[in-house]
Design a binder for these strands. Structure first.
Lengths: 89, 89
DNA sequence: TAAAAATACTCCATAGGTATTTTAT
DNA sequence: ATAAAATACCTATGGAGTATTTTTA
């Protein structure tokens, strides 16, 4: 599991499909597909239901999303507090 | 910022020096040095004071450690809840 | 002077790209 | 028919290794 995979995952949820998320992230659609596949394989669970209209979260995906949100919040907090420190010296 | 860097950071804190941490992580000491350097450059702050006796956290490093602990806890939680889900289907 | 970190390379794993195919409405 | 995801294959970035040098207590 890597941070960029979590960022990709969240972007796909927010955009409702891989193609739009890829554009927003400035990466190709296959790059997203591959990273999400790797993540799903590592977690041994399907995160999205795919269709030709886009994707939606599975139950497991919904659970995972809640944790990912918290992880990202923590990372934002960590960076913020370190930035303050870097400026204060 | 990547997860493996946070894992490396935490291992170095716990071991008190890069060499021992590298052994515990089964990676080389220069690999750790490089990743921590990259992390420090990205955060634009020094995390460790280096000496020939080992390393210790700077104030910024101590602050960062607290956040890293929380991030890792969240990740553990995320994995656990997903594992349960994977088993239950 | 000895233990630890940093540097200088080399190599390779894998993230990412383009082109194309498959799938589902 | 078309919009979206998956697959195949190639490229290149950067993570990791070995050998060595630098640093400092």
């Amino acid at each position: 599991m890597e941070l960029h995979q979590l960022i990709y995952f969240k972007a796909i949820v927010e955009n409702g499909n891989f193609t739009k998320a890829a554009k927003q992230l400035h990466v190709s659609q296959p790059a997203l597909s591959k990273q999400i596949k790797l993540l799903e394989e590592e977690l041994r669970v399907q995160l999205f239901e795919r269709s030709s209209r886009g994707v939606h979260l599975t139950i497991a995906g919904q659970i995972f999303l809640e944790h990912v949100k918290k992880i990202m919040q923590q990372i934002t907090l960590a960076k913020l507090s370190i930035e303050k420190k870097a400026n204060s010296k």
